[in-house]
């Protein structure tokens, strides 16, 4: 039987609840779970002060209620599954290396910073700095998948070095800034200064995007590997057309102030 955590008291300030993670709750009984420490602002308190605990974690945790102010859910997760019925707060799946998180609502900033594996699906929108490096850190997301069906804000994939970020809607500015490697697919439109300072990696958009001057146009073609990525995210429920899979893409390379080995592919048949 899976563990169900229902929010009964909405936190006034962000609630830091990194204990809510299958790794930490597997096999723990209801009483012990309710007694686990969480931080309400700078107050140390018990998880049971905010959540009703029901069942036992057999690898799966279900959360319900407005969790928009609950942070660090699934931090450092390695196994299992978390299903979040509503919205969720910052730092979801921070540094996670395995398992799966599904959010039925929206997510706040810092989804899966410095993730190395596993999968996060967000059916709504998300905030800034998806799959990014923490400030001052040299490497962001290194592996795994972040699938967001809605829009996101700025600096998606900041300094990412591996893995896949797929955005069903639009992104803000600086998508893939400082990118080292990996793949970002944006089915909607991107903001400005995409790929700034990127060394390697791929940013794909289905729409025209403003390019910074240190990127150069090289050719228009149908990248074989992209067919696989687009087919894959279509299987995950994202809206990708046959024309987009079979179509041509304008290839830009940059950033020339770095290695000039990054690429931005823009759908040419829109």
């Amino acid at each position: 039987m899976s563990l169900k955590l229902s929010l009964h008291t909405k936190p006034d300030v962000p609630l830091e609840a990194d204990v809510i993670c299958p790794d930490k709750l597997n096999g723990v009984n209801e009483t012990a779970i309710a007694a686990l420490t969480v931080f309400h602002g700078n107050d140390q308190t018990a998880l049971g002060d905010f959540f009703t605990v029901k069942g036992q974690c057999d690898g799966e945790i279900q959360l319900e209620g407005d969790l928009a102010n609950v942070k660090h859910l699934g931090s450092e997760m390695t196994i299992g599954k978390m299903i979040i019925e509503g919205d969720v707060g910052q730092h979801l799946g921070a540094c996670m290396s395995g398992g799966e998180i599904v959010v039925e609502g929206n997510a706040h900033d810092w989804v899966a910073p410095e993730m190395t594996g596993g999968k996060i699906t967000i059916k709504g929108n998300a905030g800034h700095l998806i799959g990014s490096a923490y400030r001052g850190s040299p490497i962001g997301m290194q592996g795994g998948e972040i699938i967001i069906h809605g829009d996101v804000k700025n600096e998606t994939g900041n300094t990412m070095r591996g893995g896949l970020i797929a955005i069903g809607g639009n992104t803000g500015d600086f998508t893939g800034v400082n990118m080292l490697a990996g793949t970002i697919i944006v089915l909607g439109e991107m903001g400005i200064r995409n790929g700034a300072s990127m060394k390697r990696g791929t940013i794909i958009s289905m729409h025209h995007a403003p390019m910074i001057p240190t990127f150069s146009y090289v050719c228009t073609y149908n990248p074989t590997y992209l067919r696989m990525y687009l087919s894959y995210i279509r299987k995950l429920g994202m809206e990708v057309s046959d024309e987009q899979i079979n179509g041509n893409y304008k290839r830009w390379i940059g950033d020339a102030i770095e290695l000039n080995k990054g690429e931005i592919l823009l759908y040419a048949n829109e």
Binding site: G162, T202, Y221, P223, T224, Y225, M228
Partner: peptide, 22 residues
Amino acid sequence: QSSKVLGKQRLWRIPVMDGEFV
């Protein structure tokens, strides 16, 4: 050349005269 990793699959993209050999 460059590589792409999709799931557990690592692909190599080798530039050739008609585009890329994957």
